[in-house]
Simulated scan of single mutants.
Amino acid sequence: MEEELIELGSPTASKRVILLHGLTGTASVIRPVAEYLCKRLGEDYSFLLPTAPIIKVKQFNGEPAHAWFDVKSSDFRREADIDGIFESSDRIASLVRNEISQGVSPKDIYLGGFSQGGVIALTTALLEPFAVAGVFAFSSYLPLEDQLTSRMTD
């Protein structure tokens, strides 16, 4: 199954918001939030809603779920899935680079997410060389402080 990507708003909108769902969610689950924001923000904004891949989540006894990275235990800060976080961050960075290649300025791109999606939005904003307009994370956290600090860009 190909991963879902929902696009909302005008493709010619000057500003883009890449909005990421949380653990077990999908683009369809977060769509009502994007639809609400689209109405409130107006025609200048469009939204990209990617869906995380289905992976086996250790915290769920290895059951498959949509997740941006594995959750190995309830102490998610101590046992972070470093590779999974960086892989998902790379995937979102490629979405940003695609928007830039289509003529959208990085200063018109916003990254945001809930829970795991917030982790990926924050990580991407810190690691990539492009300076996005803004980043937001709800019910989230910033993991991998040491690994991020050593990889951060200007």
Rank of each mutant, 00 (worst) to 15 (best):
M1F: 10
E2S: 14
E2C: 09
E3D: 13
E4N: 15
L5V: 15
I6H: 06
E7P: 00
L8V: 04
G9Y: 07
S14M: 00
K15D: 01
K15Q: 11
V17W: 01
V17L: 11
L19D: 11
L20K: 06
L20N: 07
G22Q: 11
T24K: 13
G25N: 04
T26F: 02
S28V: 10
S28T: 14
I30R: 02
I30K: 08
A34F: 04
L37S: 03
L37D: 05
C38D: 13
K39N: 12
R40V: 07
L41S: 04
G42M: 03
G42I: 08
Y45K: 00
S46Q: 09
F47K: 03
L48W: 08
L48R: 10
L49V: 02
P50K: 10
T51K: 08
P53I: 00
I54C: 04
I55K: 10
I55A: 11
K56R: 15
V57Y: 12
F60I: 10
F60H: 14
G62V: 07
G62T: 11
E63L: 14
E63I: 01
A65I: 00
A67L: 04
F69W: 03
F69S: 03
D70I: 09
D70L: 08
D70R: 08
V71I: 15
V71Y: 04
K72R: 13
K72N: 15
K72P: 00
S73G: 06
S74N: 09
E79K: 14
D81F: 05
D83E: 15
G84K: 11
I85D: 05
I85N: 06
E87S: 13
S89W: 00
D90M: 09
R91F: 13
I92K: 05
L95A: 00
R97D: 15
E99W: 02
E99H: 05
I100A: 11
I100R: 10
Q102A: 14
V104H: 12
S105P: 02
S105N: 15
P106M: 06
L111C: 10
L111E: 09
L111Q: 09
L111W: 05
L111P: 06
G112I: 04
G112C: 07
F114W: 15
S115V: 08
S115N: 11
S115Q: 04
S115P: 03
S115Y: 07
V119Y: 00
I120K: 11
I120Y: 08
I120W: 07
A121Q: 07
L122W: 01
L122I: 14
T123A: 12
T124D: 06
A125F: 01
A125E: 01
A125I: 00
L126V: 01
L127M: 12
E128L: 14
E128G: 12
E128K: 11
P129D: 15
A133C: 05
G134V: 04
G134W: 00
G134L: 09
G134Q: 10
G134K: 02
F136H: 04
F136A: 11
F136C: 05
F136Q: 06
S139C: 13
L142N: 05
L142R: 05
L142M: 15
P143Y: 01
L144V: 04
L144F: 01
D146C: 00
D146P: 02
L148H: 02
L148M: 10
L148V: 13
S150K: 15
R151H: 13
M152H: 01
T153D: 09
D154H: 12
D154S: 13
